[in-house]
Every structure is written in structure tokens, then in C-alpha cells.
Amino acid sequence: MRLDVTPHGAAECSIALRDGDRWFDLMAFDDRQPHWTTIANIAGVIPRGALLPRSRGLEIARMAATDGPGALRAAHDWRPVPTWVSDRGAYLVRDIAEALVDQAGDELMRIVRHEDRAGHLPAGVRRLAYLLGVHNKAMSSGLGSALTDTPAEWWGEAISACDELGLTDVAALLRRLDPKEPDVELTKGLYSEYIHLTSVGAWHGDDAMRTALRRRVEQAPREYGVHEMPPPPPTARYDELLPTGSSAFLRSLAELAEH
């Protein structure tokens, strides 16, 4: 078992426990209404009933340090975390677009290593992985490198992903380029347009791909393995959500982890 204690704002925290291959939220009271917050400076959704006063969170963390996480499992009420939530090791990613991009990134690495996992992941996530491969290469090394380094089949899958997400202008741009007969000079002329089309999303902190992904998952959640659809992002700016803050609280958690 693994325990995750996450601060929210200046006075609250939440506690999640990994038991086997599933995460569970500790529920302080029975309120499953979604609450937007920030986790490691990434926006995300947790049940409102999972918010605890920080003093109570530290008390529970001390109990876990003394008696082990198993004692917590028996002593409190827990609710399964949605399966789409991504585990980054140090924290959980509870924003659906960011979490699905994480899944697609993991799948991309398996594709690059030629690990055959067809059928093991939702089709939407697998197609997103091909798009992510093209996009990451274009953003880091230029559209020319993306074109010359991407197999034609993968390029076609990336275009299909753009079509699926409603990124029609991006799909049209990619169709002008042929990885079988790469025209690097053409990519130089198209690169600024590609940046313009993919950079800005509808919500602060999003790029166009993440905004399109949110919209598509809402339309066809099962394509991405989503069974519990979170609410849309708040209308407030990303940086107006409560910061996780408080170095004193984080130091207390670090001290517990050392013991």
C-alpha cells in the first residue's frame, strides 16, 4: 500500500491510498460533488468530501507512519479514484486531459520500443499516442524533424487523431506533408502556422490538443476508457485556483516519511 497526502489551498489537504492496482480517496464526509483544485500546480478534480483540515491530515499521516497504511484502510471510508487518473509517482494527475496525455505518452514509449499492446488500451488513447509523437517532435526539434523521423503509418495515425479530435486545420496541414517524400523546405514555411494552430487552447493552461481532447472525451468517453466524466474546467483562470503552498505543511509530511 502507498499513501499520498496532497495539500489544497492554505488550510486543507486530501489523502489517497493505493491498494493493489487501484487508488482510493479518504472521504471525510459523504459529499461526492467534484471540487476543482490544484495538485502540484496542475488543476484537477477531487470529491468535495475528500477535503480535510491540514491538522487532521497530519494526524492521519502520523497514524499511517506508526501503524502502517493498512490500519487506515480499515479505520476510514474510502471511494475509488476514477480509473483515468494518472499516477506520476510523486502525485496523482486529476485533470482528465493531462491524465490522458500521460497515458498516451506511456503508450508512445511502448510503440517506439515495438511492444505490441494492441487491444490493451482504448483506441482513442492509442491514436492520441501517435499524435503526441508527431507533436512532441515538432515542438522540440521542428516540423521537419517530425516529418523525417516519423514512419508514414504513424503519420497517418496522427492525422486520423486530429480528425477525431476536430483539429481539422492541423489535419489539413499535416496532409500537405508526406513522410515518404519529405519536403523539409515546405515544413519550414508551415512551422509557424503549425505553432499557431496548436499552441493556445480555450482554457488557461491548455494547448489546442488538450482543449480538443476535453471536448472529444465528453462526446465519446468510452473511446478513451472513461466511465466517470469529470465536470468541465472552471471559468476562472488556472492561476486563480487555490495554490498548494505551505512549506511548513510539506516539511511535516517529509519528516513523517523519513520515520
Rank of each mutant, 00 (worst) to 15 (best):
P231H: 06
A104I: 05
A236I: 15
P151E: 08
E181G: 07
C13P: 09
R18E: 15
M1L: 13
R73A: 14
L92A: 07
H120L: 13
K137V: 06
L253N: 08
P182Q: 14
L174Y: 09
G133F: 02
I96E: 01
G201C: 05
T37R: 10
S55N: 06
P82A: 12
K180W: 08
D95R: 00
E193Y: 01
G57S: 10
A43S: 09
L100P: 09
R127G: 09
F24P: 03
A212N: 00
D183A: 03
E223A: 13
T235D: 13
K188P: 00
S145A: 07
T37G: 09
W78D: 12
A11R: 00
G156L: 03
A61C: 12
S160Y: 01
E185D: 11
E59D: 13
K137T: 12
L253C: 02
P80S: 09
R175P: 05
R175E: 06
G245N: 05
R56T: 02
I159R: 11
D149N: 14
T38Y: 04
L131I: 11
T168Q: 07
A64P: 06
Y224F: 15
D207C: 12
A202F: 06
K180M: 15
A118S: 14
D169C: 00
H196G: 12
T37H: 09
L256R: 07
F24E: 11
R62F: 08
P34W: 12
G49N: 10
M109S: 15
